[in-house]
Write a protein that binds this DNA or RNA. Structure first.
Lengths: 193, 193
DNA sequence: CGTGGAGTTGAATACGATCAACACCGGTGG
DNA sequence: CCACCGGTGTTGATCGTATTCAACTCCACG
């Protein structure tokens, strides 16, 4: 059962009672996403966020020249959502789709109102998750501002050792903020040493 | 009194009782920061975050080539801190200093534990502030990845109309992720039309 | 006055983008 | 079984944006 993954996830982090866990489960809807299936479309109000049980999702924006820029990859046990849109019912800033056939658990904006019912520790956990996202985003911004693409690529390999094998290189390039051609050259250069 | 600014700030957002407000105030320490005074030094555990009453602070990193990259400006009524470092007592990822003579209210990592005492609305407020930071950071990353410097500069002018006048241009350049020379050329080009 | 930081301007350079051609591979259908 | 195809990645030539390094102006401030 996909929902089991959620129990496992929370058990490692919070001492929730069985009653709390099963109440929590009611807030999630299991769903299969086929490769390329779109969960949230940039510009539309987003109805769901997802906890990834299996597979891999990404959040990305498409700019005016039709180029895609990836904000986040979400492999197993990661959360992904456009929180701003989800909570405030405003148009989503980015799209979310599946890069592989995936099993996810969908949650709605109400999850955030349930924060309070589950006690402060639960709220704190989600606060920390949000903090982690912010730190990750800050690090990436710093990287883009201060490091050349080759260093950013190596940092990526170090941070997500498995993703680089799993994903088409063009997605990695879209994450790093360079073209697939440039990434190819960087890889060639690195292999040559 | 600088602390009054905090009351004003919260009164617009939360229905706190007088007792709560005065308890809240005990968690803040007024302090004057001279121009160029450093509040948090990259690499050291940070002891404080700040709410800016008057003046302007910035958070920034210094890379291996001694170039500064600005993550955030914090003028009046903004919060600024290295939350990750503050809460977990780990080395700060960036420095924070004053760009002008400033009045700030310092708070320690304990503020986050007090979240719970002040009720869920209070927690939710800070959750939303964190969300806003994340969205801002996401927007900046997208901008750096997809927009040329000229567009990013115009976006900056639009988003922070007053800051561009208040601050030396080299800081604006460090925020945009370009050199002062490049910013100067962009401005020259824009003025010529 | 004169000194140093801030901003501008110029010339040479570097890094990545763009456009185009091509190799490779897995699947599909004749 | 093979021919064809689309998607993926590589490689080459050229171009553009921003960097680097240097010189110079303009003030604010001692």
């Amino acid at each position: 059962m996909p929902i089991e993954a959620l129990r496992t996830y929370f058990q490692g982090k919070l001492p929730l009672t069985e009653a709390q866990l099963s109440e929590l489960e009611r807030l999630f809807t299991p769903r299969h996403l086929a490769r390329h299936e779109v969960l949230i479309r940039q510009g539309e109000a987003s109805r769901y966020g997802a906890f990834v049980v299996r597979g891999c999702l990404r959040s990305f924006v498409t700019d005016d020249r039709q180029k895609e820029h990836i904000l986040q990859f979400a492999p197993e046990n990661w959360w992904i959502s456009d929180q701003h849109s989800l909570v405030r019912h405003e148009p989503a800033l980015f799209s979310i789709d599946a890069l592989e056939d995936s099993e996810v658990l969908l949650f709605s904006g109400e999850l955030y109102t349930y924060f309070q019912k589950f006690g402060p520790e639960f709220q704190t956990l989600f606060y920390q998750l949000l903090q982690n996202s912010l730190v990750a985003m800050q690090r990436r911004l710093i990287g883009v501002l201060s490091e050349p693409a080759e260093v950013r690529y190596q940092d990526f390999l170090h941070l997500y050792p498995t993703l680089a094998q799993r994903l088409p290189l063009r997605h990695v390039a879209a994450y790093l903020g360079i073209t697939p051609e440039s990434l190819s050259r960087i890889r060639g250069e690195l292999a040559r040493r």
